[in-house]
Amino acid sequence: MISFTRKEQIVILILVVFVIGIIGFNLIFKDKNEITYEEIEDEDIVEGREVKNGDYEKDEEGIEEIVIHISGAVNKSGIFTLKSNSRINDAVLAAGGLTDEADMDRINLAKKINDEEKIHIYKIGEEQLTQDTNNSTNANGLDSTEENIEKININTADITLLESLPGIGKVKANNIVEYRKNSKFKSIEDIMNVDGIGQKTFQNIKDKLTI
């Protein structure tokens, strides 16, 4: 049997404690690293899934909703808020659908629409009209710059379209409609016979009018 002096026993004990301490420290540090790594890895997976499969889709500019103005042969002309990437058909549905006067041959219901866009649904036999906006679309799906632009016919234009003329608000637009119920406009100058429309207003809109 091997025997050790007391001094040797103390040295051996110190070495054993030291080795055990190193082994224990490595085990604890390893477990800690593994837990931290797994937690970070799980977070990365969740974030990637949220980006890839979000609750909603955004268009190229990051817009979730758009605001449009629709007029003409619909049951309720006005301004509506739609989802991004909506089409003319969505705008028509928001406006209560088409009226019996809508010219179906001049409507492209599949065309996508943009934020701040003005849409006009033509009536059967209605002349092509000028849209007085920078971002407008006629119901056939073509921007006004792509078409043969015509002037607004003051004998047939509806109130919404008349309001698009400079200086013509809702009251003056209504006055125009009431006037032509009794007497059709024989010249664009006749519009100055309407209450509230004088020489100054006429000069601002004359280049946009026709009969």
Rank of each mutant, 00 (worst) to 15 (best):
201 T>Q: 08
186 K>A: 15
82 L>A: 01
29 F>E: 14
16 V>M: 12
1 M>K: 13
34 E>S: 09
10 I>F: 12
39 E>T: 09
188 I>K: 05
204 N>E: 12
65 E>C: 00
108 N>E: 13
14 I>T: 15
174 N>T: 13
98 L>Q: 07
143 D>R: 11
94 A>F: 01
187 S>V: 07
84 S>Q: 12
141 G>C: 05
65 E>I: 06
152 I>C: 02
4 F>N: 08
48 G>D: 06
150 E>L: 12
30 K>N: 10
11 V>N: 11
51 V>K: 09
163 E>N: 06
163 E>F: 04
17 V>S: 10
60 E>R: 10
84 S>W: 01
48 G>V: 06
37 Y>D: 04
157 A>Q: 02
103 D>W: 05
161 L>A: 13
95 A>E: 03
77 S>R: 10
62 G>T: 04
30 K>M: 06
168 I>T: 03
94 A>S: 12
145 T>N: 15
92 V>Y: 03
18 F>R: 00
160 T>Y: 11
147 E>Q: 15
127 E>R: 14
97 G>R: 10
62 G>C: 04
46 V>I: 14
133 T>C: 11
197 I>E: 04
184 K>P: 08
114 N>W: 15
193 N>D: 15
30 K>G: 01
143 D>Y: 15
8 E>D: 10
5 T>C: 05
147 E>N: 14
108 N>I: 01
120 H>G: 02
36 T>K: 09
150 E>R: 06
204 N>F: 01
73 A>C: 07
107 I>D: 03
32 K>M: 13
118 K>R: 13
157 A>K: 00
208 K>G: 04
35 I>F: 11
13 L>N: 13
54 G>F: 03
4 F>Q: 11
186 K>S: 15
100 D>P: 13
13 L>A: 13
68 I>N: 00
23 I>F: 10
99 T>R: 08
102 A>M: 06
186 K>H: 08
96 G>H: 07
54 G>V: 01
174 N>W: 03
191 I>Y: 00
70 I>H: 06
50 E>W: 14
50 E>T: 07
53 N>E: 12
60 E>N: 05
52 K>I: 06
110 A>N: 14
192 M>D: 07
91 A>G: 05
143 D>C: 09
40 I>L: 14
127 E>Y: 13
200 K>L: 09
37 Y>E: 10
58 K>E: 06
87 R>P: 04
86 S>V: 02
64 E>F: 08
102 A>I: 01
62 G>A: 01
107 I>P: 02
167 G>R: 02
